[in-house]
Design a protein around this nucleic acid. Sequence first.
DNA 1: GTTTTAAATAGAAACGATTTTCATTTAGAT
DNA 2: ATCTAAATGAAAATCGTTTCTATTTAAAAC
Lengths: 145, 145
Amino acid sequence: MEHDFYRILKGLKLKVTPKRIAIMEIMAAEKTYMSPDELRSKLKQRFKNIGLPTVYRNLEELAKEGVIIKIIHPDRKLYYFYCHRKEHHHHFVCVSCRRVEDITFCGMEEIKKEVEDGLKGHMVSHMLQVYGFCKNCLIKQVVSQ
Amino acid sequence: MEHDFYRILKGLKLKVTPKRIAIMEIMAAEKTYMSPDELRSKLKQRFKNIGLPTVYRNLEELAKEGVIIKIIHPDRKLYYFYCHRKEHHHHFVCVSCRRVEDITFCGMEEIKKEVEDGLKGHMVSHMLQVYGFCKNCLIKQVVSQ
DNA sequence: GTTTTAAATAGAAACGATTTTCATTTAGAT
DNA sequence: ATCTAAATGAAAATCGTTTCTATTTAAAAC
C-alpha cells in the first residue's frame, strides 16, 4: 500500500515526503469525505506542527491529478475523498454519516444528446451529486424510533 | 410584469418594496446567472446607496421560495438566476457567456433505483449541473478562427 | 388620513475558510 | 557530501458572506 502511494507520487513528479504519504494513507482508509481541517486533526497525531496550508496545497495537487476527488458542498466548504476507481462515475453521499458510495449509471449520454441536438450547444462537463441516507443510517433511524 | 412580481411577493408574505421589485425585474430580464455583487452594480443605477447585505438577504429569500435558483459554482461563490419554470428540471450553463438554459430530461429515476435497490440507501435529493458552450458561443468560436 | 408596529434597510464591523508571503527545511539529483 | 528546487510552517492577508444595530418604511390598525 505504501508502495502504491510512492509510485503514484513518482508518477505525478511530486516529491515523496512523509506528509504526502500520510495524507494519502489517511484519505484512502476513510470512507467518508473530509474537510481540510478534519484531515489536519488526524495528521497532527503524527506531525504536531503540520500547517493548514500544507494540507490545502497537497489536497489540491492530488485532486488536480484525480487521485482524490474534490467536492463543493452546499455549505460552500471544500471536502475531499480518496478515489479508488479510475473510470467515469458519480457519487452518492450520505447526508447523515457522509459515507461516499459509487454510482455507476449516469444518464449523461441522453443529456448530452439533448444539449447538442435540442439546444444546439456543446456539452463539455457535468457535475452530479446525489444525497440521501445510506444503508447503515437507515437502520439506525429505524432502531432509534 | 410588475404585477406578477407584486403577486409573487404577496404570496410569499414579503413586503413589496421598490428594491425587491427591482431585484426581480433585473433577475428575470437576465438570461445569465449573476453574483450578488454584479446584481448590486445594476441596482446602484437606481438606488445609489443599496447595501450588499440587502442584496444577499433578498436573493436568499427568493431562492428559498424557488423564485430564483441558487447555484454553487466551482469557484465556490454564489450565483443566482431567475427561474421561469416551476416544474422539476435542470440547467445547462454556458461556460463562455454564462447563459442558462433548461434541461428537461434528467435520468434521476434510474439513479434513484440504483441507490435504493443496489446500495439499499434512500435518495433524498440531487444536484446536477451541466457545462458547455451554448449555440451563440459556438458560432462565435467558429467565426473568430 | 394618522398612528402603530413589525419588517426591511444601510453601514460598519465581524467572520471564517482559504490563500499568499517569506524565511527555513528537506528530498533527491549531481 | 553538495547543491538546488520543491515543500513546509507561521503569520498575515484576502475576500465573499453574515451579523449587528440604529434607522427607515410598508402596510395593518385605527
